[in-house]
Design a protein around this nucleic acid. Sequence first.
DNA 1: ACCCTACATTAGACCTTGTCTAAGTCAACG
DNA 2: CGTTGACTTAGACAAGGTCTAATGTAGGGT
Lengths: 139, 139
Amino acid sequence: MSDLLERLRNRGWRLTAQRRVVAQVLDGDHIHYTADEIHARAVEMLPEISRATVYNTLGELVSLGEVIEVSTDGRAKRYDPNAHHAHQHLVCQSCGTIRDVHPTGDPLASLPDGERYGFTLSGVEVTFRGLCPSCAQVQ
Amino acid sequence: MSDLLERLRNRGWRLTAQRRVVAQVLDGDHIHYTADEIHARAVEMLPEISRATVYNTLGELVSLGEVIEVSTDGRAKRYDPNAHHAHQHLVCQSCGTIRDVHPTGDPLASLPDGERYGFTLSGVEVTFRGLCPSCAQVQ
DNA sequence: ACCCTACATTAGACCTTGTCTAAGTCAACG
DNA sequence: CGTTGACTTAGACAAGGTCTAATGTAGGGT
C-alpha cells in the first residue's frame, strides 16, 4: 500500500490523513466494499472523515486507474483494489459477495467483426453469477 | 406481443390496461429503455398510469423471465424484452446505448473448475464496452 | 347482466445511493 | 513559519427505486 501512496504522491496528490485511511481500508482485506462500507471502516480509524471525502477519494482513485468500479446489481457500486491484474468477477446472487476470477481465453476476441456495429471497443466485463456455498445451503 | 399477453394470462395474470400498455412499449422498438423511459412512453398511451405500476409490472415481468434486467453503469436499470434468445450486450460508454450481440463460444465454459470457489453457477453476463460511431466522432 | 372480492393501481411519502455547495482547514512549498 | 490553493466538511439536494394506505376493477360466480 505504501506503493500506492507513493504513486499518488508522485502524481501530485496532497497526502491527507483522510486519503491515507481510505487507501488503508482498500488495501486491508482486498474485499469489494461499497462506498458506504469503506466510509464505515474509515470512520473507525478517523472518526471525523466525511462521506463526501470518501466518495471524492474513490472517484479520484478510479480516474487514476488505481481502483476499479464494479456495479453488478444496480445497487451500490463496489470498489475493487485489484486494478493491476486483469480479472473478472464471480458474484453471489444472494449475498452479493464478489470473488475475482481469471477465465481462460480473451473475451474481447469472442465478438465477431460483424457484430461490432462500428463501435470502438475498449474493454469487456464478464460477470459469472451463482450461489456461494453458504447461500446454496440455506436455500 | 399478443404472445406475451397470452402467456401472461395463462400464468394467472389479470390483464389490465396498464399492463397491456407496458407490454406494448417493451414490444415496440426492442430498445433497452429505463423504467422511467418506459413510464414516459406509457403515459402517452394511458395518461393516468403511475410510476409505481410501471415498476411493479417490470418487476413481475423480470420474475417471470419475460424480460431481462440490465444494469450496465450503476445508473438506472434497463429492461431488455429479448429474453428468449441468449445474447450479450455492447454498451456505448458515452451515450449509454445498448446493442444485443452474440459472441462465439460458451462464456460459462471459460471459467476453470479451480476458480469456482464452490459456487453453483447459474449464468454469465458479458458486457462489451466502447464508443458508438456517433459518439466516437464527437470526442 | 350484475355482484363480489381479491388483486391491481394510485399518489405521494420515504429510502438509498450519490453529487454539489459554501465555508472552513491544512499540506507543502518557499 | 506564513501563505495559499487544494482538500475536507456538514448538510442540502437529486436520481432511482420502494412502500403504504386508500381506491378501483377484472373476471369468476350466480
